[in-house]
Design a protein around this nucleic acid. Structure first.
Length: 306
RNA sequence: CGCGGGGUGGAGCAGUUUGGCAGCUCGUCGGGCUCAUAACCCGGAGGUCGGGGGUUCAAGUCCCUCCCCCGCAA
């Protein structure tokens, strides 16, 4: 089969690599245009572009594929399109091009967590399981029929970045199994139950402000789920401290009250229900570090309410 | 040349403004106390102050230069 791959961030790379080492031919890759990034605003290619280029696969970077990528895609004459976190909406015209349609690798247990940040939201909402779903794309956003699913447990202190990495590999395996079954003709299309669907809005920095009135399960979810971006944070004196990793723990007090704060006991903060132990944090200008290390050189008085 | 913060014993920091003895918390090593402890007391080891050059009687501190780390904005 001639396969065209569409994807952009690190999450998509394992799927692309799996396809490349598979028996089918990846004839082209679509990804988002290079963007100015990081210090110095250097133009940076997407991880998918870097991967494709390393394998000598033609790369296409239309600003909008449904507007100025259609002809290129037609020319590639794909039998199948595979998308994984591409970041652009496909029009019906684009969807109609590949013979066998478009398979999408989505990082949630659909129909829950449609949208662009499914992994973060699963953690954010304090859920215990996450997963990946392969699906046939249709015109809606993550609304197409489901094909295969794989699930995994979310670790107590697992961050969005870490879970993303795991799911990207799980997704690549599931994608290859999906294609095997597609060829074998054993694939079942399962419509999504609209009554159970949830759609997550895009993330932004405002979501990072920690509200300790909420139960520890959700405060912990917010801290772990927003790492590495946009990150949960709290003002300590006049500094905004990013909270990078946390776990639930024993303890009670006024919401936001610092219950423990020293290099041995770490940093424990009371929530509306229960308490959280901050495991990693990051001060302005500094590196991410363990809370115990931070407290060797900075004081947060126990009893302070954050 | 997008904006900004930072590099000081093993860890985290102060000291740089105004040049003048290498400081704090923790860890570590030895000793003591205690039924006991992440507690407490006493003592010790450990630092080319990111690299190089310059100014000076004297540089962590001032000047020039290079390297590395981080945040913001995109």
């Amino acid at each position: 089969m001639r396969i065209v791959f569409m994807g952009t961030p690190e999450f998509a790379v394992p799927s692309l690599e799996a396809l490349i080492s598979g028996e089918d031919e990846v004839v082209g890759v679509f990804t988002q245009p290079d963007r100015p990034k990081g210090r110095g605003n250097k133009m940076t290619p997407s991880p998918v572009k870097a991967c494709a280029a390393a394998h000598g696969i033609p790369v296409f970077q239309p600003e909008r594929i449904r507007r100025d990528g259609v002809e290129d895609l037609k020319t590639l004459a794909p039998d199948l399109c595979v998308t994984a976190a591409f970041g652009q909406i496909l029009s019906q015209e684009v969807l109609d091009i590949p013979t066998y349609g478009n398979i999408n690798v989505h990082a949630s247990l659909l129909p829950r967590h449609r949208g662009s940040a499914p992994i973060a939201y699963a953690i954010l909402q304090g859920e215990e399981k996450a997963g990946v779903t392969t699906m046939m794309m249709d015109k809606g956003i993550d609304t197409g029929d489901m094909l295969l699913k794989a699930e995994t447990e979310i670790g107590e202190t697992e961050t969005c970045g870490e879970l993303t990495e795991r799911l990207s590999r799980l997704g690549a395996e599931l994608l290859m199994e999906t294609i095997r079954q597609l060829k074998a003709g054993t694939l079942q299309r399962i419509p999504q139950n609209e009554a159970e669907m949830t759609y997550d809005p895009m993330m932004n920095k405002e979501m990072g402000q920690v509200d300790f009135d909420r139960p520890a399960r959700l405060v912990k979810g917010q801290i772990n789920g927003l790492n590495p971006w946009p990150c949960a944070s709290v003002m300590v004196g006049d500094e905004r401290i990013k909270l990078m990793r946390a776990a639930r723990t024993e303890g009670a007090g006024r919401p936001g009250e610092v219950l423990v704060s020293d290099p041995k006991g770490g940093l424990v903060i009371a929530c509306g229900e229960g308490a959280v132990k901050v495991l990693e944090l990051q001060a302005p200008g500094g590196k991410k570090m363990r809370a115990e290390d931070y407290l060797r050189g900075h004081e947060i008085k126990a009893g302070t309410v954050l």
